[in-house]
């Protein structure tokens, strides 16, 4: 029950994100979710695509540093307090979140939240025990 993402190293200069999306477009890959962390010099772009392996191959061929990571994902109802409920569980279990991003599909009344943690299995089982609705790659 994990969600696989790609992480891409970017130098913080103009045109790099456009180049990233051009490479995936040429490879015929669809981007489903994306988030960027950046500093003055560097950025890390994280994305989920409909074919991560194909994306990584295409990106590496075009001079990007790309790798894949597994995240824990869960869906929450689209209303106030839903995210806090989950974060509160993680906080009490002393689970540290490396980063987090979310997306919602317009066709659904729920949002998906993805978190990076050290122990995927342990985190997933704690969330499941607390009745949180875990998701996997298929949700996309």
């Amino acid at each position: 029950m994990l969600v696989n993402q790609i992480a891409v190293f970017l130098e913080n200069r103009s045109g790099r994100i456009a180049e990233f999306s051009r490479v995936l477009s040429d490879a015929g890959v669809n981007i489903q979710a994306m988030s960027i962390a950046d500093t003055e010099e560097y950025g890390i772009l994280r994305a989920i695509t409909d074919d991560n392996e194909k994306s990584i191959n295409a990106l590496r061929k075009n001079g990007f540093n790309a790798s894949s990571t597994d995240l824990v994902g869960f869906s929450v109802e689209d209303k106030p307090g839903e995210m806090f409920k989950v974060l509160d569980i993680l906080e009490k279990a002393k689970i540290n979140i490396g980063y987090l991003y979310s997306f919602a599909k317009s066709s659904k009344k729920s949002a998906v939240i993805l978190i990076k943690v050290d122990d995927n299995e342990g985190t997933a089982s704690i969330l499941a025990q607390n009745g949180i609705n875990l998701v996997d790659q298929d949700i996309l």
Partner: peptide, 10 residues
């Protein structure tokens, strides 16, 4: 960086 460097955090 190496092409296959596992990096997903700043």
């Amino acid at each position: 960086l190496r092409d296959d460097a596992q990096i997903d955090q700043i």
